[in-house]
């Protein structure tokens, strides 16, 4: 009985892994192949001569394979490089700004009582439920008048309107479950600011780190606003820059290589912060 359910468990994990990893593998495989290998039929499951040509091409370098084929630099390279730079800057700034706003905000909503709390909270959370598309056109016409179309500052502001409510909502739940250390801190003679900065924040470190990660990933992956507001400008971000491949001679290897490129920062981030993800239940063992 137990062995049988264990077998099912393993099978489930295997299916889930395949489900997640197969598309990723397929993209990486494309990125390591030449044009003719990509178009081979039936498809090759393993790249016959894996080479990093496509990665170098999209970053603006020519590459000659071992068999002497020249893979020329992509015409989109400048856009990709620009997008990479902008996306990193934007994601870091959005993360910092989001956390500066959200940590105190979520704390106040999670742990303190004040007048009209319910209504204010409702207003914040309403923003979570709005689909981004619904605010796209208002933002666009506003930005045309404010000259913010095609600027990183414009995209920064729009992204904050999404990350702040979303991350507040997530972090609130986490902070609510922390034990009532405020009373303890007040008995010990600490000010509210001290309790927040020196007790709650260190105590809630894991939740805050994970929340920051969500903000980073959200900004890094944001596509809808970027597509409308910054495509083709100097403020282009990586997801928007990648769509450039769709309007050119099909280069599946280049598209796959740039997709792989976008996956690297989130992977690195999650890899180094996984300790915090698993530590998320830092709450009173008795409660």
């Amino acid at each position: 009985m137990a062995a049988r359910s264990k077998l099912w468990g393993i099978m489930f994990v295997v299916v889930a892994l395949l489900w997640t990893l197969m598309p990723l593998y397929w993209i990486v495989r494309f990125a390591l192949e030449t044009q003719s290998e990509v178009s081979h039929f039936p498809p090759l499951f393993f790249p016959p001569n894996p080479q990093p040509g496509a990665f170098l091409n999209i970053l603006g370098f020519n590459y000659t394979t071992a068999s002497g084929i020249l893979l020329p630099a992509s015409g989109q390279a400048s856009q990709i490089l620009l997008g990479l730079r902008n996306s990193l800057i934007l994601a870091v700034l959005v993360t910092i700004a989001t956390m500066l706003v959200v940590v105190p905000l979520a704390y106040v909503f999670a742990r303190l009582d004040f007048a009209h709390k319910g209504k204010l909270l409702g207003a914040i959370l309403l923003a979570v439920s709005l689909p981004p598309v619904s605010t796209l056109i208002p933002f666009y016409s506003l930005y045309v008048q404010l000259n913010l179309v095609g600027t990183l500052a414009g995209l920064f502001i729009v992204t904050l309107t999404i990350t702040i409510p979303l991350v507040t909502w997530m972090l609130m739940g986490f902070l609510k479950n922390l034990p009532p250390v405020e009373s303890l801190g007040r008995i010990d003679g600490f000010s509210r600011t001290y309790i927040f900065m020196r007790i709650v924040v260190p105590m809630g470190k894991s939740g805050i780190v994970v929340a920051a990660m969500i903000a980073f990933l959200f900004s890094w992956n944001e596509y809808v606003y970027a597509q409308v507001l910054v495509t083709g400008s100097n403020a282009v971000t990586l997801p928007a820059a990648m769509t450039g491949f769709l309007f050119q001679v099909p280069q599946p290897a280049h598209l796959a290589a740039s997709l792989t490129l976008t996956l690297i920062p989130p992977f690195v981030l999650v890899f180094f912060l996984q300790r915090h993800i698993t530590e998320l239940n830092l709450v009173d063992p008795i409660r």
Binding site: L178, P179, P180, V181, S183, L184, R186, I187, D188, G189, I199, P202, M203, K205, L282, V283, D284, I286, R287
Partner: peptide, 18 residues
Amino acid sequence: PHQRNIAMVFQSALLYPH
């Protein structure tokens, strides 16, 4: 609270968990 020179033990022996 601090200026009253009191000490308090809370339900389920609350401590700073970190």
